[in-house]
Write a protein that binds this DNA or RNA. Structure first.
Lengths: 120, 120
DNA sequence: TTGACATATTGCTACGTGGCGATATAGTCA
DNA sequence: TGACTATATCGCCACGTAGCAATATGTCAA
């Protein structure tokens, strides 16, 4: 009930803010970056290596994550270290993963009578 | 720890699935629809009225939400009734709203010394 | 059947943005 | 100062999609 009320009461601009936040999380590259940062802070160059992505693009996506307040940056000489500043994102991903897992299991369970993979 | 591990272990295609789910939630119109459905099932026409949106667009967005497994549809004669089939989305929105609220409060708290709105 | 209605789909345009190469900026060292 | 390095930004192209008007589909009544 509580949450439902909250959702009901969101005005137009709040909705846009929420949509924007989801939009930031709706890019595989940005999710990859967050995933890489889940283990701890990393420099831009390390991220480029880990993701095998171009520096320009990694930097751009980091900028978007930073502007959204999801990561924080810290200069260290020539290098710039980024880290996740909003652990909430892991809860978000966890909820979504749970749903996708349930969907996948349901899809398997409704398969004809082909041999099904063992659970776990 | 638990969640971090989960995030770390997502492979490429799982990441795309997660990104797709966030993408579905990254549209103000679709969030409006979910918001309207939070109070209970509604017919397409009711949603058009509530959102003051064109029928074609509401129908399209409902199709996207349905394909993502977030809403379920049920025919009732000429009408089609939709309802939220994945309550998890309210948790997602709640988490995001919490973050946005904290950000907004932090922004206010760091304002020069202009008069600040009372808390609550 | 036919007509009337609610919803879904199609074809289209306009806009936002991910990724790229090239370049600018900032920091370090000599 | 100038050379060198790591990161950020710019201009661009290609692609996806929200919203629209028009049309198709499905359902009921007569």
């Amino acid at each position: 009930m509580e949450k439902v009320r909250e959702v009901e009461s969101l005005d137009q601009s709040a909705l846009q803010g929420v949509a924007r936040m989801f939009d930031v999380l709706a890019e595989p590259t940005r999710l990859q970056i967050l995933q890489a940062l889940a283990g701890g802070p990393k420099y831009v160059g390390e991220l480029c290596d880990t993701l095998s992505a171009k520096q320009a693009n990694v930097s751009k996506q980091l900028g978007i994550l930073h502007q959204a307040g999801l990561v924080s940056r810290e200069r260290d000489g020539l290098l710039v270290r980024y880290c996740v500043s909003e652990p909430m994102i892991f809860e978000l991903c966890s909820l979504v993963c749970g749903k996708l897992r349930r969907d996948a299991e349901a899809r398997i369970a409704s398969m004809p009578q082909a041999r099904r993979p063992r659970k776990r």
